[in-house]
Design a protein around this nucleic acid. Structure first.
Length: 204
DNA sequence: AAGAAGTGCAACCGCCGACGG
DNA sequence: GCCGTCGGCGGTTGCACTTCT
């Protein structure tokens, strides 16, 4: 395999992290805090690239990580947020305290996708497909729906799985999501009343 | 018991946007 | 405006582990 660009100059460790490496990284970040991932490995005495350190810290070593199985309400929230945001895992994970984008993404790909497919829900538009055949991409442009939920899309930013990128009205959409999901079929979601306000820096 | 197939998840890859020179 | 660097993101891969045959 090719080494990443950031690792070209030195022969660096790859693959699974050892306990010793973890300890070095934890110790360094506890002492100096996060920041400048490029120089961190050398400063911490690690033969890793900065990206690898960042990933390891964010996805595995951070003290505030929850780990373990996803609760049912977390699952529901992921599904609902995915209906609204698409594959924007970092945004979805941001709504799940103690969860990482990688964790959410893995959980979606390994559990939730199958679960929704078994329920006959189209993963592209979160519609039931048993009685309503999946829409073609052209047919679903401009809006997405999830069971009874209709996610409006005034700026055409939501196409199939594409996320909402406009801050305006996002709260309204989520209110609809929270109120419109629990009526059809056996697929029920609680009224979570999510605040999906996202800073304009993130959206832009 | 053993090999095959399936599953879950940590880690890597490549791309993109922000930023500074 | 261009270029290089950096951090961050989503997609993908590799492999250990589990389940099935």
């Amino acid at each position: 395999m090719r080494r990443p660009a950031c690792c070209d100059k030195v022969v660096l460790n790859r693959g699974a992290w050892s306990k010793e490496e973890d300890q070095k990284l934890i110790h360094y970040i506890n002492k100096h805090g996060e920041g400048c991932w490029r120089t961190l490995p050398r400063a911490a005495g690690l033969l890793r690239c900065g990206k690898s350190c960042r990933l390891r810290w964010i996805n595995y070593l951070r003290p505030d990580l929850k780990r373990g199985n996803f609760a049912e309400d977390e699952e529901d929230l992921i599904i609902k947020l995915h209906a609204l945001l698409g594959n924007r895992w970092s945004l979805i994970a941001g709504r799940l305290p103690g969860r990482t984008d990688n964790e959410v993404k893995n959980y979606w790909n390994s559990h939730l996708r199958k679960k929704l497919m078994n329920k006959g829900i189209d993963l592209n538009n979160h519609r039931l497909t048993r009685n309503n055949p999946p829409l073609t991409s052209s047919g679903s442009s401009g809006s997405s729906s999830y069971n009874g939920l209709k996610v409006t899309n005034n700026d055409n930013s939501v196409r199939n799985n594409e996320p909402i990128t406009n801050k305006s009205n996002s709260d309204d959409r989520v209110s609809e999501a929270a109120s419109g999901l629990d009526e059809e079929d056996s697929f029920c979601l609680p009224d979570l009343n999510i605040d999906l306000t996202v800073s304009s820096e993130i959206i832009a």
